[in-house]
Design a protein around this nucleic acid. Structure first.
Lengths: 249, 249
DNA sequence: CGTTCCCTTGAGACCGCTCAAAGACCGTGG
DNA sequence: CCACGGTCTTTGAGCGGTCTCAAGGGAACG
């Protein structure tokens, strides 16, 4: 069905809509290099598995459209969402180059991913320094956002964590042009938020309501509206990060 | 003093003691390449700052000897330790290649670090594919251990977190030959552990005692003894990771 | 021998948890 | 069109894990 159809209408890198975006401005790799690296596209439906937690990863992905998330689980079922992937995010590298994965990746919406062969990475590293550099840049930068997530989980209170997460996601989506005014379509359920924040579902719900009552956000079914961005940032104690452009693989 | 003296006795890469270790076996970069990349050594005393939280990082480091840790702080002083660096660990890349740092690095013991110029990284990427590949490998692998830390903070209980952290550190040190039997010299104080685990100092102390009472560990002044490794791993729900060799820059 | 740093202990408060159940919304089928 | 089941959100009640505050004890060091 959807996934089969999309194989035939694969987006050529030259027509990649992401390349137009300012966030990726000025540091784009030669289209032909990327195109040569790319072996196909993967289409996944909401709730679909992109990478199994125990699997050995043989591919690398760039999200072309849609939302996904990376997670780990404990034997007894406790799940922790590590981060969310939006268009332009590069996935699969984390699995320490060729060992088993250790984390799963699941789609939240209908998603399309560009697929690259892991075992060709070496070849492309050798032939294109820019690509090597960019992959490293992306890996290093993802670490940065994990650092922030660790700070959140370790030292922020429930309401601060939520404020940070919502602001972070909104800001990231804004850079990708996915927002309208102060409004963002967020596909995850409260249980996803809870599993991201290290909180229980019930407490997440109650804390969300506190944020609504103080008019910092609105959050109906699946759309987030930021009513008071400054209040949110202050609460989350966001240290303004210069939003530099980033590479796109 | 110490730091001046050490400039004169810099370890040539050819005599790097780390290269002997099995953990780094079989995937070592040509000594001459590393040696050309290395511009000096940095010696730091316990409590000394390796990288300031607000600074712009211009160097990359490999820990040659000693313990250090990476941390972030919130304005009001709450500190979160992100991870610990032991010999062979590569530092400074996280600062998303040339932006401001966002985290600090501090030495726990007398430490010696090999220093590399960040702005030459590109040059070496271009001239040595293996080095580029290894740097990326290290970045990806560090992400892996941050994933685990996120799982801990988000979903493990206090006692599980401690069990995991102690086992993780012990296992890592064991790979480096820093343990004697079941015993490890751990330079951090309980306040460091608390700031790593996202717990208060008091609760860390009380939980530590529970682990001692059930004879899983001993922890006197600064030495950790693992009495019952299996119990620890079971409590922490460690999924046995194949301990592959890793690159050394 | 006083100061300082660290570890330990106790007491009480609060944040976030679990359990349980009631709305709300939606698609499906009778 | 309504009944029904499913998924998700919301509420309430009570428990407990972790926190803060406060103080005491031990070891190292000048």
């Amino acid at each position: 069905m959807a996934s089969t159809a999309s194989q035939n209408i694969a987006t050529p890198c030259a027509k990649c809509p992401l390349r137009e975006l300012p966030v990726f401005g000025g540091r784009l790799i030669d289209v032909n290099v990327i195109q040569a690296f790319k072996i196909g596209e993967l289409t996944v439906a909401p709730g679909g598995t992109i990478l199994l937690e125990q699997a050995r990863a043989s591919h690398l992905f760039t999200v072309l459209s849609g939302w996904a998330f990376r997670y780990k689980t404990l034997e007894d079922g406790r799940r922790q969402i590590i981060n969310y992937a939006l268009p332009g995010d590069f996935l699969g590298l984390q699995s320490s180059m060729s060992e088993t994965l250790g984390h799963g990746i699941e789609a939240l919406t209908d998603s399309v991913l560009c697929v690259f062969p892991r075992d060709k990475l070496w070849t492309f590293f050798a032939s294109d320094t820019q690509l090597a550099y960019d992959v490293t840049w992306l890996a290093a930068n993802q670490e940065r956002s994990l650092d922030e997530q660790i700070l959140s989980l370790g030292r922020r209170t429930a309401i601060e964590r939520i404020a940070y997460l919502l602001w972070y996601l909104f800001d990231k989506a804004r850079g990708l042009g996915m927002t309208k005014r102060n409004q963002l379509d967020m596909p995850m359920r409260q249980s996803h938020l809870a599993d991201t924040l290290g909180l229980s579902l019930v407490h997440t719900n109650k804390t969300l309501q506190r944020l609504r009552k103080e008019r910092s956000i609105e959050l109906d079914d699946r759309t987030l509206r930021i009513i008071n961005e400054d209040a949110l940032k202050k609460l989350a104690r966001v240290d303004d990060v210069e939003n530099a452009t980033r590479p796109l693989i």
